[in-house]
């Protein structure tokens, strides 16, 4: 296509990346609405949050997710599947951490229906967790097609998945700050 050929210059000139960037933008509004609800109901749940959340433990799992953005950045520049595997591993560690956190809270009687804290906590972190799972699936699909196909997957596919993965990571920066660090305020 002529249009594609003439406008390939910048990264926002790429059809795939621009689409993912816009998608990520609209997802930000989605998360913003949930974060607003969390903050609006914060006072009602703050006591429970302080009593039940394990900040040091979740900090460790969060560092794994934050680090995965760095490995993903390496994967995009090198197009090397090993960095992709490292990213999947770090994302997996985060999800396992969240899962054990959920199990501990549920065992202690904190559930979406128990009180305001449970409602807002599980909704916000749960929606983020679903996005991490989708991201892991995308990483796995990228890795799988890189391994299976004779023709190399276009670098733009790596960049597109990376863009989404960085977004999922950035959302956790906000969620971790509001939910976990917020208990210290």
């Amino acid at each position: 296509m002529i249009a594609q050929a003439t406008r390939r210059a910048g990264w926002l000139g790429d059809r795939t990346l621009l689409g993912v960037a816009i998608f990520v933008g609209s997802e930000s509004i989605f998360f913003l609405s949930i974060v607003v609800a969390y903050v609006a109901n914060r006072d009602a749940g703050l006591g429970d949050a302080r009593a039940t959340l394990d900040l040091p433990r979740t900090t460790v799992f969060s560092l794994a997710l934050f680090a995965s953005s760095a490995t993903m950045a390496r994967a995009t520049t090198t197009l090397n599947a090993r960095w992709l595997l490292a990213t999947i591993a770090l994302g997996g560690i985060f999800i396992v951490g969240q899962g054990t956190e959920y199990a501990r809270l549920l065992a202690a009687g904190t559930a979406p229906s128990s009180a305001m804290f449970g409602t807002t906590f599980f909704t916000l972190t749960g929606l983020h967790g679903i996005h991490v799972l989708v991201g892991l699936a995308a990483l796995a699909a990228l890795g799988g097609s890189t391994a299976a196909r004779a023709v190399a997957v276009r670098p733009v596919a790596w960049e597109a998945v990376a863009l989404y993965w960085h977004f999922v990571d950035a959302v956790w920066v906000v969620v971790f700050s509001v939910v976990y660090l917020g208990t210290k305020l």
């Binding site: 609800a37 109901n41 006072d43 009602a44 559930a111 979406p112 229906s113 009180a115 305001m116 449970g118 409602t119 807002t120 599980f122 909704t123």
Partner: peptide
């Protein structure tokens, strides 16, 4: 899920 976002009885 029995949540309380908009439930005034649970300070929603």
């Amino acid at each position: 899920l029995g949540g309380h976002f908009f439930d005034p009885l649970a300070s929603g």
